[in-house]
């Protein structure tokens, strides 16, 4: 047998009236404080708890550890270029000809989008060592190509000169120079 049900009471907005009492002004102030304090402390706690979930995406210790390589330059003849892999990216090592060096040095700084003299981009003029990653969106530019006879990026058409400086196209910066040292005349350590 179904019990006869009494219709629940509703307030003017149509919400159910439940077993509450109307707080007085003094209580309201105290409750507001408690609400704000509770929400505030919870937010701070949530922030701290969120950090590990964000930080776990950073490069891990083993990834960071793989940071240097040693390259033997003796087989690279003048005018040749080799590509080595460093930190998962291509690094171009180019044995530049005298003409290429001259072309790289004979440039008016005002013509450059990212002005930098060739001398600041090399330790030894004949060895140009750069990260082979287009500064636009990361494709690998092709050597001995483009309007400046340096590198050309096929993805969206960036032209780099024989110093790897951006001359034309959407890339904003020159090709990057990694940290490196020559340990002897034919050995370089990158990273």
């Amino acid at each position: 047998m179904a019990r006869p049900e009494e219709a629940p009471k509703q307030d003017v907005r149509g919400f159910l009236v439940m077993a509450e009492h109307t707080p007085d002004a003094h209580e309201v102030g105290r409750r507001d404080f408690l609400s704000v304090a509770t929400i505030g402390v919870t937010a701070v706690g949530a922030g701290f708890a969120a950090w590990p979930f964000i930080a776990q995406w950073n490069p891990a210790a083993d990834v960071l550890a793989l940071a240097t390589i040693e390259v033997d330059l003796s087989p690279v003849a003048e005018g040749q270029q080799i590509t080595v892999k460093w930190r998962g990216k291509p690094v171009f090592i180019r044995h530049r000809t005298a003409d290429e060096i001259a072309a790289a040095r004979d440039v008016d700084m005002d013509d450059l989008k990212d002005p930098q003299p060739d001398s600041e981009r090399v330790l030894r003029p004949e060895w140009l060592i750069m990260v082979g990653v287009c500064t636009h969106l990361g494709c690998v530019p092709l050597g001995n190509q483009g309007e400046y006879k340096g590198w050309f990026c096929p993805c969206h058409g960036s032209h780099y000169d024989t110093s790897g400086r951006i001359r034309k196209g959407p890339a904003p910066e020159n090709l990057g120079i990694p940290d490196y040292v020559f340990t002897d005349d034919t050995t370089v350590v990158i990273g």
Partner: peptide, 25 residues
């Protein structure tokens, strides 16, 4: 190419890309 779009953001761009990659590439 698409993750590198983030590197266009000023200041935080580069760091953000490394974070998305979890490495150097």
């Amino acid at each position: 190419v698409i993750t590198n779009l983030l590197s266009a953001l000023p200041v935080v761009g580069e760091a953000l890309v490394g974070w998305v990659w979890g490495g150097f590439s």
